[in-house]
Amino acid sequence: MVKRKSMVILDTEIRPGRKTILNLDIARLHNRTKVEIPVIVQRGREDGPVLLLIAGIHGNEVNGVEIIRELISRKINRPDKGTVICIPVLNVFGFLNQTRDFPDGKDLNRFFPGSKTGSLASIFAYYMMNEIMPHADYCIDFHTGGADRFNSSQIRISRDHPELLELAQVFKPRFIVYAPEREKSFRQVATKMGKKVILFEGGKSLDFHKRITMRGVNGVMRTMHHLGMRDFSDEISANEITEPIVINQSSWFRARHGGLFRFFLKDGAKVEKGEIVGSISDPYGSFEHLVKIPHDGYIIGMNHAPIVYQGDALVHLGTV
């Protein structure tokens, strides 16, 4: 009889074939109420890889929270082999306040690996990297566009880690975008620890988008199937998805005028140089400026704000 490996997370033994809900108890509110971060661990009956699914590093990026909620609700996170760790909301403070950052204005995703005696964001980062990350082999970090910026579904990977391209292709987002790792970000530090991390971007903050949610859910199923954690052959065959487009370089095209902004195309569209994608006008009907694309590419992100200033980012244009 094969002896299964023991697994202990947050001083709790995770038994094979069981679901265990843990609480990462880090901080308290001003009234001394505990702020606990639920960590949902589902272990298969057989040993295998450990996949971490995390969202809510930015508290207002709720579409990632919805993706993990959907995975748990549909019991997709139950592996036959290995373990799936779900953290739907890491930045609980931002989630409660519907803001991106911590109460002290710190961006959690710039404070990894953190410090036990640092700022509140740094303390959260420290416990995440020391209590949870040592158990993970693979990680999918779910994000959305900030403010009014809507992102097409995309996996971001670094050129420095070409082995991640296969994982991104398995996930099958609309786009695979080569993007450098930000200094002191979760992705950078977890990768330095030897973990295989892919970052999913889709939708915008404080918004649910069904298409983005289902891309994320299907992508996790494909990833688990690829890693041999569970057979999702029927689900995968029922959701045929086109191969992702690899974006080698991207940049934001900015507004030359301020005013009322309206878009004519959908995200993900292929565009050609000189193509009109929107218009900017003043509130009084005295002028209307047509927004033309500067070069060929794909719209991987767009500004949904109805009012823009000169210099505001309008279109995130990716080239292959």
Rank of each mutant, 00 (worst) to 15 (best):
V2P: 15
K5F: 08
L10I: 13
P16N: 10
K19F: 10
T20A: 06
L22D: 13
D25E: 15
L29N: 14
H30V: 05
R32I: 06
V35G: 07
E36S: 13
V39Q: 06
R43F: 04
R43W: 05
R45N: 14
R45M: 11
L53T: 12
L53P: 07
A55P: 04
I57K: 00
N60D: 15
E61A: 02
G64F: 09
V65C: 03
E66K: 15
I67G: 01
I76T: 08
G82A: 08
P88G: 09
V89D: 02
F93K: 08
F102E: 06
D104I: 02
K106G: 07
G118H: 09
G118C: 14
L120C: 10
F124D: 00
A125I: 12
M128A: 08
I132N: 04
Y138P: 05
C139K: 04
I140M: 05
F142N: 02
T144Y: 09
R149A: 02
R156V: 09
S158V: 04
E163R: 13
L165F: 02
E166G: 00
A168E: 01
Y178E: 06
K184T: 09
F186S: 02
Q188F: 01
V189T: 13
T191E: 06
V197E: 01
F200Q: 00
F200W: 03
E201N: 01
L206Q: 08
D207A: 05
F208P: 00
H209D: 15
K210N: 05
R211N: 10
R215S: 03
R215G: 00
V217A: 01
T223G: 02
M224R: 03
L227I: 11
G228E: 03
M229S: 10
M229R: 04
D231E: 11
A238I: 10
N239E: 12
E240D: 14
I241E: 15
Q249I: 03
F253P: 01
L260Y: 15
F261D: 06
A269H: 10
K273T: 14
G274M: 08
V277M: 05
I280P: 00
Y284L: 15
G285W: 04
F287A: 05
E288R: 09
E288M: 09
H289M: 06
I293C: 01
P294G: 07
G301L: 08
H304S: 14
H304A: 14
H304C: 12
V308F: 14
Y309T: 08
L314A: 10
L317V: 10
G318Q: 06
T319V: 15
